[in-house]
Amino acid sequence: MAGYTLRRLAGALPTLFIIITLTFFMMRLAPGGPFDSERRLPPEVEANIKAAYNLDKPLITQYGLYLKRLAHGDLGPSFKNKDFTVAQLIGTGLPVSLKLGLSAMSLALLIGSLLGSWAALRQNCWQDHAVMTLAMTGITIPTFVTAPLLSLVFGIYGVMVFGHEFTLPVAGWNGGALRNMILPVTVLALPQIAIVARLMRGSMIEVLRANYIRTARAKGLSAPHILFGHALRAAALPLVSYLGPATAGILTGSLIVEQIFGLPGIGRYFVLAALDRDYTMVLGVVVVYAALIILLNFIADILYAVLDPRVRLS
């Protein structure tokens, strides 16, 4: 197990390296820089600033310097927010994004697998069709449509719950209060719920046809025992390998959700930084995102090996 883990880890590092390299050179290939502004700086000042950020050195030297710093965990100073380092900015945004993303992911896995299993148990009945129609809707309608529509309905018009007019805040983080999280997390989770439900239904149908389930039934085990004790573990395997893509999906969605609901996460920083050509900030966020995706893929691989005895570890 330890050997397998190490090998997986060794495989993940080159990917991270490729991402860093690609992003670094893509950012620099393009015209324009972070210090282009409406008011031209005096050439001496500009030269001084560039020297201070090592922008006057050859590109390959800059790349080397960046890697060296990165190895020490230093993401460099932000070019635009001059009083902050990239690590500080990401440090304030990351907890928000993580809380948002992890809540959405847990919600998606829980509700999605419940709905999917239910549809599989009622295959070709109306329950199945209803769940699959909902899933199709969830996959089709993009986050940037559901977000404004839901905030229009629940945030502005409000809904009547037990005779009380009930509205949810449509913007702001408010220290991560539950009220503020409901809408963004729901919006972020909806497409993932749909995908998880589809995956779960497919694999559950396949598992329920397997011989060992038939044997369990023939032995007279109760339906819940068969479902939770025997079928669920095997049926959940495709979900485990979906963890990686799900992370990518939620990160992409968070760009939109943080923008619409005005949340101070790193997705918002990324879009702003990209528009401002804040090289170090963009690189920093991409490094963090890539590390997150790779980490989740890694965890998924390990989980898969633990759950599926057929995966050979040698």
Binding site: P14, T15, I18, I19, L22, T23, M26, M27, L29, A30, P31, G32, G244, A248, L251, T252, L255, F270, V271, A274, L275, R277, V282, V285, V286, Y289, A290, I293, I294, N297
Partner: peptide
């Protein structure tokens, strides 16, 4: 496989901003 694990949307965003 490697390309699959890249957060591609970020590259597209960077490309669009740059060009």
């Amino acid at each position: 496989d490697i390309l699959y694990s890249l957060p591609f949307i970020f590259f597209v965003i960077i490309l669009m901003v740059m060009f």
